[in-house]
Design a protein around this nucleic acid. Sequence first.
RNA 1: UGGGCGAUCGUUCAAUGGUAGGACAGUGCCCUUUGGAGGCACUUAUCCAGGUUCGAAUCCUGGUCGCCCAGCCA
Length: 583
Amino acid sequence: MNDSNAATPAAIPSAESGGEGLRHTSNFLRDIIAEDVRNKTFGDAAIQTRFPPEPNGYLHIGHAKAICIDFGLADEFGGKTNLRFDDTNPEKEEQEYVDSIQKDVRWLGFEWERLCYASDYFPQLFEWALQLIRSGYAYVDDLTAEEIRQYRGTLTEPGRDSPYRNRAIHENLDLFVRMKAGEFPDGSRVLRAKIDMASPNMNMRDPVMYRILHATHHRTGDEWCIYPMYDFAHGQSDSIEHVTHSMCTLEFADHQPLYRWYIEQLGIFPSQQIEFDRLNLTYTLLSKRKLLQLVEEKRVNAWDDPRMPTLSGIRRRGFTPEAIRAFCAAIGATRTNGITDLEMLEHFQRDDLNRRARRAMAVLHPLKLVIDNYPADKVEFVDVANNPEDPAAGTRQAPFSRELYIEQDDFREVPPPKYYRLSPGKEVRLRSAYFVTAQSVVKAADGSLVEVHCTYDPLSRGGNSPDGRKVKSTMHWVSAAHAISAEIRLYDKLFSKPDPYDFAEGGDIFDNLNPHSLEVLTGAKLEPSLAAANLDDRYQFERVGYFCLDPDSTPGHLVFNRTLALKDTWAKIEKKTGKEPGT
RNA sequence: UGGGCGAUCGUUCAAUGGUAGGACAGUGCCCUUUGGAGGCACUUAUCCAGGUUCGAAUCCUGGUCGCCCAGCCA
């Protein structure tokens, strides 16, 4: 295994051929921004957006949609995007996550204008809180969390005012400053906005602005023991950064009145919040909390397990940023809530890899094929196209000899209907090499197939017969003496149901985990050129699927991940006509 | 059942009062030195009921259905 930095023949071209050609149709976010630009809603100021993850987990494909929207739309209008960590809850946040998030955003292909942290605004936020207290719009509440919940009322009943609601301003000021000074234990008091306990919008029923948390923050350490809530940090952070369009997911729609209320009371830059639908994908879990659980309970190996929908997971799996961006462009943004077929993502990934991945021959389940009329000591090298989709990718030479490996599936002693591959008496083409005709088989004592014997047509070198006769099938192969062995990891869906949340009463989401999501093959035989594979290379193992090297590889032990299988018409036929017993 | 938001092929996204279209999936055919890729074709949709209008997926009214909200999470 080589280092992944060097440019090699196999490194996929950073072709943005599919990327820049992304067709975007209209969507309501673009329309709103275009309208604001036309109306000069924000004067001559440039469009400014932000991508605001909380560093409490790894980014996943759902975040990729948000990233493409936040960065993509700003870029379209000549604007800029900040990466801002919404780090207002020290109990869940870690440096590990802020590092991985930056890496993932860059990997997706975006660069931020400024790197920001809500925690950088803690002093300003504190000043603004004092301002609201002074103007009578905030108060310190001594109710317990449970009492606050009870006073809040329900969806159908209005809440009641806290007995502390009309505390004198000087008393509120004094208590809040002492909260900050660390005089009170966690949970003993909060600062609340004084709005309307009878509002039909629960978020307006005197929302908590600050809570006491004697916790060490990953950036500010022990400097603070009071932390602002999301609602008293997000809009203000947007405002400080002069974010013009603050795009977030639909579940925050109910927060918009509060977002605006704080900005208006404070008289600061009027950032505007716009909500869009979050991504849902069939067979895929997109909840940071649940994903964390998968990792902590060791149901997967790590955040970057290739079965995970995290960006680090699908990156290791072999997915490319170009494909993910194309996918995000295709799914667009709306305010409806639906579930996108996983096939859609897979389609854009296959499409990208088909154009760019170098071809190679690899036999996953080897079966020995012996060419009886081929000299035992002869080796010749045949030219093989590196990518039929891209002649510029050139050719390579593959060693060919008397004993080869072919795929077990490519031979049937008794061929089922419509089976075009090798069977006794049938002639097929070995890709870029020769026509061969199966003659006989050798079996072990237990009846299992050991090897297939065939004869070849020396005149068909390169894969065509001078007499113009056709064969139905072209098969991949590797020379037994030259093949390298490798471990192959085949991945399937992590969940076996389109909706992972579709489980029986009393069960849980993990009941739907697919027990066959990982299959490890240890005896695969690869063409020798694959020994030089790099981590960044993307391959199509012809007729099998797309593969990439896994970081677990060592010079003596190569490990390849299957990104996606190729579409398989024969498998479909087989499924439809009922399973054949095989050989 | 208080409030907010939404409803177009199986899925997803368009159509911005004027011919309901694309992509994915599916099916069939053609082509193929990958049963890959590609090409062609086919199937299928405006939630319901009224109204406005020459004309409605689009505007209005009333239903129906779905999602979100009662953290000192974000």
